[in-house]
């Protein structure tokens, strides 16, 4: 599954409304890399430009300057090796397609025949624990189930890289635990590379091999932490591990510390 895939972000800058009266600099010279098979969590406060970063990684928004490379190619648009699961599961599923059709739709774009499409879709739905809802319409499913469908769609696309933007932000707490475990399990089984953007510190530590902490204004990388739990994790023991508490404290301190610094010396920039 791993095809030597890797994402490189170099000196990424993003400015909205450039040259205008409301010029707003979001990202200032961000650099990071994602290794093949790795799970990387990007964590930071709301409004830090996490979503902007993910959109750049997905090739949806061209950066103002700097570059995003996939392997040795420069990304200029959405890539066939990258699947995206967005925060807005309700909006990203097409309401007029049955669940299996939603999962299979990207394959239709590749010219896969209907029978083969459906078989793949059902397989992927099975993998996310939704074996028997293929013939329903999205509105008939709960929020957590809809987000599973979106994940299944990413799997069906058979991309070695899965990008997730606040994927579990708007589902209930219980489904959230389940979806986190599902993500870990899929990654272990399929060996895919996962990048998750989140504002939830616990989630970032639980899901990531590495946690990249963003902060500041404009946003920069504050810290990168390596998480020592390996690929076998579970909600009870991992979260009870003293190192878990240590890591989340460090992430929180990095974000808080940066904020306190800013408060102490106001209006310098």
């Amino acid at each position: 599954m791993t095809r030597g895939s890797v994402l490189h972000v170099e000196d990424l800058c993003m400015t909205f409304g450039q040259g205008g009266p409301q010029e707003h600099r979001v990202l200032a010279g961000l650099s990071l890399r994602v290794d093949p098979g790795e799970s990387v969590c990007v964590v930071g406060p709301s409004g830090a430009g996490k979503t902007t970063l993910l959109r750049c990684l997905a090739g949806l928004t061209p950066p103002t300057s700097g570059s995003v490379r996939y392997g040795d190619q420069r990304l200029t648009g959405p890539h066939a090796d990258i699947a995206v699961v967005s925060q807005d599961y309700r909006g990203s599923l097409l309401p007029w397609m049955r669940v299996w059709d939603n999962v299979a739709f990207p394959l239709q774009g590749r010219g896969v025949r209907k029978a083969a499409r459906k078989a793949t879709a059902l397989e992927c739905l099975d993998a996310v624990g939704l074996a028997d809802v293929g013939d329903k319409y999205p509105w008939q499913l709960s929020g957590g189930m809809q987000q599973r469908v979106a994940i299944a769609r990413g799997l069906a696309y058979d991309a070695p890289v899965l990008l997730m933007d606040e994927p579990f932000g708007s589902v209930d707490a219980q489904s959230r635990f389940d979806l986190e475990d599902l993500t870990l399990q899929l990654r272990r089984r399929l060996g895919i590379t996962v990048v998750v953007v989140t504002h939830d510190i616990d989630e970032s530590v639980y899901l990531g091999d590495r946690v990249i902490v963003l902060g500041g204004r404009p946003t920069a990388v504050l810290d990168t932490l390596t998480v020592p739990f390996g690929t076998d994790r579970d909600q009870l023991t991992t979260r009870a591990d003293p190192r878990f508490a240590e890591l989340r404290t460090r992430v929180l301190a990095r974000i808080r510390g940066e904020r306190l610094d800013q408060d102490a010396e106001p209006a310098h920039n």
Binding site: L60, S86, R90, L94, Y157
Partner: peptide, 20 residues
């Protein structure tokens, strides 16, 4: 917009986009 975004990330061809 969410749907348009999805269509872009999964690189759905123009004609298929119109039809489906």
């Amino acid at each position: 917009p969410s749907v348009h975004e999805t269509v872009r990330t999964y690189r759905i061809p123009r004609l298929l986009r119109f039809r489906r």
